[in-house]
Design a protein around this nucleic acid. Structure first.
Length: 387
RNA sequence: GGGUCGGUGGCAGAGCGGUCAAAUGCAUCAGACUGUAAAUCUGACGUCUUCGGACUUCGGGGGUUCGAUUCCCUCCCGGCCCA
């Protein structure tokens, strides 16, 4: 793998209370505490380790009271009820703060809530009930979730906003990151969490497509890591790239990603939120990004799009996707991917998968999801040089 | 044999004098999906097109009318009821 022989890949181990992780890694989105249509066994078969859950979704449903009470009937977990026990998932989990959800909800429909400097007031799309989330509350919820990695509440404006508005979002993101850090220190102290069990904390870098704003944001965030406000200074474990990383035409914001990665302290984790397609992940890894999460492999699996390897070398067009619902697969009895050993590829033909998709049976979504996630976990193994 | 209701695009099913190439749903075909309001959404779906339109369609045939998928006659086919 030529492009990765230049030590541009930051392969390093990180420790969490649920086990070690090796960068670069990919986390599928188990937003509501599950990956649609998949069991824990399916996920393990696909090679999945860490996953992302969402603070906003879990807070609304099933609610924190239930999660704090939960008990796993099949496995011993330490401590009180948490999302690991509820899901019966003993590998690392990262919770996203929910800022992205609340903001996109409000940006799409201003009647759904309002944003102030103090926090966000929003209506639940489930039942219309009113909720109020502050940076402090977002952190408290994530401690209650009991995750291994947590993310500050941020303000992610659409990249199409004016520079003034993007800068205001940067300022708010910084103010909220500071409050999140103070709350984080407070929770660690109050909950008497030992050093080795501390969840990793990630801040988020905003700034849209403006390099100077990205720089301003990172510098402000680094400074917060040196602040002794609320307790001894604590550095961020990682920095996330916030907002969309593609422009309105779908072009990857290569320069912004590359520039921003360089601003992040060398020994901190670099989390490219929401990235992405396999080629976007490869490019981002080359820029120095360490962690990724994206709905693409699972959502597209449910929609019949299957990822196939073309080339072991991760250069050029190393993969392709097929829409298995296309009529050309109706009588194609070949294997889905001859080079894959997932449940789907070992057992079924393209024609059969085509058929169960056409019949809309949930089995189609399930086995396609296993396949696509296996593709992604293998992609990361190839990037790390493990296969 | 008599009565009655009905025959509409691949299917189901609206329309019942012009605004109908014909609602809607399904099926079909293609596309989108990037910190999941997504098992979702978009587009195409008679033929041809210089994308302005043009042409042939609503069981068959005939009629009324400026004009019929819509009204009348007749034939064919189907459901139900009575013999």
């Amino acid at each position: 793998m030529e492009i990765f022989s230049e030590k541009r890949v930051r392969v390093k181990k990180i420790k969490t209370k649920s086990g070690e992780l090796q960068t670069p890694f990919f986390m599928p989105d188990a937003t509501r505490g599950f990956i649609k249509s998949m069991s824990g066994k399916d996920l393990k078969d696909a090679g999945v380790g860490p996953m992302v859950v969402n603070t906003y979704h879990l807070y609304l449903q099933p609610g924190m009271e239930l999660i704090k009470k939960s008990v796993s009937p099949c496995q011993n977990f330490d401590g009180q009820g948490n999302i690991h026990k509820f899901m019966n998932w003993d590998k690392p989990l990262l919770s996203d703060s929910g800022g992205y959800q609340v903001f996109s909800l409000i940006h799409k429909n201003p009647q759904m809530g309002k944003i102030t400097d103090d926090g966000v007031e929003f209506r639940s799309p489930l039942d219309g009930s009113k909720h109020y989330i502050t940076p402090e509350k977002a952190i408290q919820i994530q401690f209650d979730l009991g995750v291994d990695m947590m993310v500050c509440l941020d303000d992610p404006p659409p990249n199409s906003h004016t520079k003034e508005k993007i800068e205001a979002a940067v300022d708010r993101t910084l103010a909220w990151a500071k409050r999140c850090m103070i709350e984080y220190k407070k929770q660690i102290k109050e909950r008497k969490i030992e050093k080795e069990n501390k969840p990793l904390i990630f801040c988020v870098i905003q700034g849209g497509e403006y390099l100077d704003l990205r720089k301003k944001c990172v510098e402000g965030l680094i400074e917060i890591g040196f602040s002794k406000e609320g307790g001894p200074a604590m550095r961020w474990d990682g920095y996330g790239f916030g907002a969309r990383h593609v422009d309105s035409e779908g072009n990857f914001l290569e320069k912004v990603l590359e520039y921003t990665a360089k601003l992040i302290p060398e020994d901190s984790l670099r989390f490219a939120l929401g990235i992405g397609t396999p080629e976007d992940i490869v490019r981002s890894v080359q820029m120095g990004w360490d962690m990724f999460d994206c709905v693409i492999p699972t959502r597209e699996a449910r929609h019949g799009k299957i990822f196939l390897w073309k080339d072991d070398n991760l250069e050029g067009e190393f993969y392709k996707t097929v829409n298995i619902t296309n009529s050309k697969f109706k009588d194609d009895f070949s294997a889905i991917d001859e080079n894959c050993d997932c449940e789907l590829c070992l057992n079924y033909s393209r024609a059969y998968l085509h058929h169960i998709f056409k019949m809309k049976d949930p089995l189609a979504a399930r086995i396609a999801s296993i396949h696509n996630l296996k593709f992604y976990t293998n992609l990361m193994k190839k990037i790390r040089g493990e296969m």
